[in-house]
Design a binder for these strands. Structure first.
Lengths: 156, 156
DNA sequence: GCTTGACCTTACCATCATGGGAAGCCCTAT
DNA sequence: ATAGGGCTTCCCATGATGGTAAGGTCAAGC
């Protein structure tokens, strides 16, 4: 099986298959005489594993751990579970951060009449900061630390 | 005011202030004879605006639009509101994606006894894909398109 | 006046996972 | 033999941010 077919039947792009190989996430594929990569169904299964884990939001680093456990016949399911729980916790944090943003934005948008006039509580909030909001709405998020880590939350 | 002080009183790192200048988000700062950037309170206000918008998850691109509106005295608040609503919609989508991941992970983790034995439904799911899950739990997310766009959701 | 330390400058590199493209080789069908 | 599609490697870009290094500047204290 060439890389194209492996890609199709695993759902991982050829580009990413090469990338995963380059970073050592998957072993180096066999090659034909001409240098083409060759894949077996076992390799495809590995790629599907990775694909599925990516779909669940795992980072490549975590996937490395998961793969190691998968291939370790004497693993303890507790170790797998712990990785999953960590992942859940991370998702929870980021969801809460985004939820907080959304709540704030909703309140601001609700307060904005959205007509032809220039006056806008949304801009007012951006200028003055949350502390000057009329409703002191953002008390909900207790002491949001302004960490700068929230930066990872835009769409990109 | 030098860049350090502007950074402190705006909450934007010096590094990012220079970056915002380089991409044209903020105008080029004045310079001392020695080449040091000089900032006024007006500049700091601008930086605070940006900082606050970043905290609400707006991308730099969107912030550019917001700044343009802010500085446009004949703006219509409807335009501002629309940007906010777009932002809310984007957050909603990403929250839902992450929520779906989290729900799946929670079910899998619940099904994993997490002891010393190697058998683990989490790994089983990763190997076989969601379609082979015992409980057909993932029917909730109707026809999740496996878009690959979900890739933007890991912590990084 | 000179040293020291804090601050500033630019320039480059790294992140993380992914896509895009170019230049060139290979294989198969016509 | 040629065309077209697939494969190869290599380089670049994304977005917002941090880090570091090499060097210039300023102010305070001696």
């Amino acid at each position: 099986m060439n890389i194209g077919e492996a890609s199709k039947s695993s759902g991982v792009s050829a580009k990413m298959i090469r990338y995963y190989e380059s970073i050592g996430l998957i072993p180096e594929a066999g090659r034909t005489v001409a240098g083409y990569r060759v894949y077996t169904m076992t390799d495809v299964q590995l790629l599907r594993f990775i694909r599925r884990a990516r779909d669940l939001g795992f980072s490549v680093e975590k996937i490395e751990e998961l793969l190691a456990l998968w291939q370790d016949r004497s693993r303890q399911s507790a170790d797998v579970k712990q990785i999953a729980l960590q992942q859940i916790a991370g998702l929870e944090v980021r969801i809460r951060e985004m939820q907080a943003m959304m709540d704030t934005l909703r309140h601001l948008a609700d307060a904005c009449c959205g007509d032809h006039r220039p006056d806008c509580p949304i801009l007012a909030d951006l200028v003055n900061g949350p502390d000057h909001g009329s409703g002191a709405r953002e008390e909900d998020q207790q002491s949001a630390p302004r960490s700068g880590k929230a930066a990872g939350l835009q769409a990109h």
